[in-house]
Design a binder for these strands. Structure first.
Lengths: 128, 128
DNA sequence: ATAAATCTACGAATGTATTCGTACAATGCA
DNA sequence: TGCATTGTACGAATACATTCGTAGATTTAT
């Protein structure tokens, strides 16, 4: 059985918004916009338009019962992340997950706790 | 000191081509095209145009001394991979490398050898 | 030498992402 | 009540990625 979304492919801007929605659950455009503004520089109607497009695409749901609409993420965070990671492994690392993992760790200095968590995870994987 | 390419951002099509060039070192358009054709369906002039654009952007070098031009990758594989992985960690995983790593491993079934290699790598990291 | 095959250059069409201005409706407040 | 604020809708401009057709030059093979 196929599980819906085969072609999850949010754009960069859409991902920025999705991250906020995953975090906060329910958001108005203004709330999202104010968070975005911290890191980038765009007008309010730009954010509005993006979120409207995301709604058209089915990435988010929208409650229009009040004047100020309420948005929620419709795509699952885990699934989206998985999908994007898989694509990167194929597109950029010729399908080798381990090469990507090492690249990620070598670069992005993880904390000791994080490294331990990963080790634990690896051990669990091995036992299966 | 800044190290050159701050905005490495090859498109998907460009990455497909770069992977081939990283593998084969020197390539004609036809060679690249024949490899691409196995997985996708596009005309020869499409590949040609893409590689010309990549040349304009400085992603590849080109030897035009003969009728059939020879292309080589100009951007470094490691650096490009690092850059893209970092972007994904930030864009998709809120900056958490470990969360991405686990997502990658949980999904993409690595072999026992791969897992061992990663463990080894983690141990080396811890010792530093 | 001539025709076929191969190659590059170029322009144009299409699709999509991103951005913003303007118009207009609803709301809140003086 | 009337004006300022806040919100949505919509259209359009811009930028870029992708695709392909056609023209013209060069090489190859007959």
């Amino acid at each position: 059985m196929m599980t819906g979304a085969i072609d999850i492919k949010p754009t960069e801007s859409e991902l920025e918004i999705l991250q906020i929605l995953w975090e906060k659950e329910r958001c108005t455009v203004r709330e999202v916009h104010e968070i975005l503004e911290k890191n980038k520089d765009a007008g309010y109607t730009t954010t509005l338009k993006l979120m409207q497009i995301m709604h058209e695409k089915g990435l988010v749901s929208r409650d229009t019962s009040a004047k100020t609409h309420i948005y929620k993420a419709l795509v699952n965070q885990q699934k989206t992340q998985q999908h994007l990671v898989s694509r990167m492994i194929n597109n950029v690392f010729n399908g080798s997950a381990s090469r990507m993992v090492m690249q990620a760790l070598g670069n992005h200095k993880a904390s000791k706790e994080e490294l331990d968590a990963i080790k634990q995870y690896l051990d669990d994987l091995s036992k299966k």
